[in-house]
């Protein structure tokens, strides 16, 4: 086992490596245990169900393969989202796992992702006078159009590539943002 890496992280790294060759559902706990050098029971102890493993590997992929560039303006948020669509296209097997993990019944208390918190903070900072309901509706719509789930549906259901997905994203986001006043008029 690689030094300095704890067992759950090593299991997730091996799961990600296996995803390059096999679909998630065909990766067995036994194989993962062998690859990491621990027993199958140890793998179960860290990931009691396949849902736990799916969530774990998606979190690992989000941070290692699809890191989110920081954004403090809407333009930067849009740029970050488009860059992620391109990254998803480069590693579709990883991106589908992230989309799946975001859609399952959560194994623990559901928590907003870093992406969601950053987006809400960005909107609240740039539009301090926006009422709470519209803030949440705008944030939810933007978050959902920027998600791996959006990429997955556009790719599978509409046969779109990342640039085409970005075009649908741009048009949808522009419509959602019409509720906001022009940026120049909000700062006092």
């Amino acid at each position: 086992m690689a030094d300095g890496v704890d067992t759950p992280t090593a299991i997730l790294a091996k799961t990600a490596a296996a995803l390059r060759e096999y679909p998630f559902d065909e990766i067995s706990y036994g194989t993962l245990g062998e690859a990491v050098g621990v027993s199958e029971r140890t793998v179960y102890r860290h990931f009691p169900t396949r849902s736990h493993l799916l969530e774990g590997v998606a979190g690992w992929l989000e941070s290692t393969e699809f890191p989110l560039p920081p954004f403090i303006t809407i333009a930067q948020f849009e740029e970050a989202s488009r860059a992620r669509f391109l990254a998803f296209d480069q590693a579709p097997a990883f991106a589908f796992v992230c989309a799946r993990a975001a859609s399952i019944s959560p194994t623990g208390d559901p928590e907003p992702t870093f992406f969601t918190r950053a987006l809400v903070a960005m909107l609240a900072t740039n539009h301090p006078s926006l009422n709470e309901r519209d803030l949440r509706r705008v944030a939810a719509a933007l978050r959902y159009f920027a998600s791996a789930q959006f990429w997955a549906r556009m790719r599978t259901g509409f046969d779109l590539s990342a640039p085409e997905i970005s075009d649908v994203f741009d048009r949808s986001v522009a419509q959602v943002l019409t509720v906001l006043p022009a940026p120049s008029r909000t700062s006092r």
């Binding site: 975001a102 859609s103 907003p112 969601t116 939810a140 978050r143 959902y144 789930q149």
Partner: peptide, 20 residues
Amino acid sequence: AALAHLDSAATWVAFRREFG
């Protein structure tokens, strides 16, 4: 595409999970 995306179970999951 946008309407198809919104008219789906994933919308319900994302809004509930990410925004409570």
